[in-house]
């Protein structure tokens, strides 16, 4: 299959058809310890990044929200409180294990109101056109095989004037921070993964996938190319993470 199109899986080049299966393997492996690892790896800061995302979403009572790659449901849980019984929150994830963990966690929290779950591929969202006020994808876009296709799919399901929020690892703005961050990602992260999740490879992939993900300006341009307007980004924790926001034109 030498004419097969290639894409990144961390630093490796793999066939386009292969990537989804490889990513699925990573998340099947880490699903049960995903929340613990997030807290350990970020020192709990991921909660602040998510809180800022919720504030910037402008979501209010009665809105409909789609949380793609929603994983263990951190954002969906908060959104369901905000939209209330009149609203709708869909927690979508391509990975069955992650969705299962997320659904169990939210049910344990008693969060059933306005919440539904969907196993869905971000590139081919199984929802009607113009059906959501807000679409979020937190730490998921870099795992998607064709990001342009996924962004266009998100634009399609958004209502005119609706907003997309992409929370994703990005490029640190300070050289010194960048070096410290690299050392942490490639030396500490896989060891933490091995110690607490019994899986160093998945966390090696995490570090690599962040490095090959488009930087702030590139992702902003990709959103504009996909048809979003007023695309902008906000660097957090020195650019380690960036939150991109774009609006669907009226």
């Amino acid at each position: 299959m030498s004419d097969q199109q290639k894409t990144h899986f961390g630093y490796r080049e793999v066939d386009v058809n292969e990537k989804a299966g490889l990513v699925a393997g990573v998340f099947h492996s880490v699903a049960s310890r995903y929340d613990l690892m997030n807290d350990l790896m970020s020192g709990g800061i991921h909660r602040l990044w998510k809180r800022f995302t919720i504030e910037l979403s402008g979501v209010r009572s009665g809105h409909s929200v789609l949380d793609i790659a929603g994983g263990t449901g951190d954002l969906a849980s908060k959104f369901s409180d905000i939209v209330g019984p009149e609203g709708r929150v869909v927690l979508a994830d391509i990975n069955e294990s992650m969705l299962q963990v997320g659904r169990d966690k939210l049910l344990d929290q008693g969060k059933t109101q306005a919440l539904s779950f969907a196993q869905a591929d971000a590139q081919y969202l199984p929802f009607e056109d113009n059906s959501f006020d807000c679409v979020t994808i937190a730490f998921g876009l870099r795992n998607v095989t064709d990001k342009d296709l996924a962004l266009r799919s998100m634009l399609r399901v958004l209502k005119p004037g609706g907003r997309l929020l992409v929370l994703e690892f990005s490029k640190p703005t300070n050289d010194l921070l960048s070096k410290a961050y690299d050392a942490y990602s490639f030396n500490v992260l896989p060891k933490l993964g091995q110690l607490f999740a019994g899986d160093a490879d998945s966390y090696q992939y995490l570090a690599e996938s962040i490095r090959v993900h488009p930087d702030q300006e590139t992702l902003k341009e990709m959103m504009l190319d996909a048809g979003f307007e007023q695309s902008e980004f906000f660097n957090m924790t020195g650019g380690i993470v960036a939150l991109h926001r774009g609006l669907k034109p009226w």
Binding site: L48, F52, M236, T237, G238
Partner: peptide, 10 residues
């Protein structure tokens, strides 16, 4: 930094 601001306000 928004993360710091959110932390302080939180």
């Amino acid at each position: 930094d928004p993360a710091l601001q959110v932390a302080i306000l939180g």
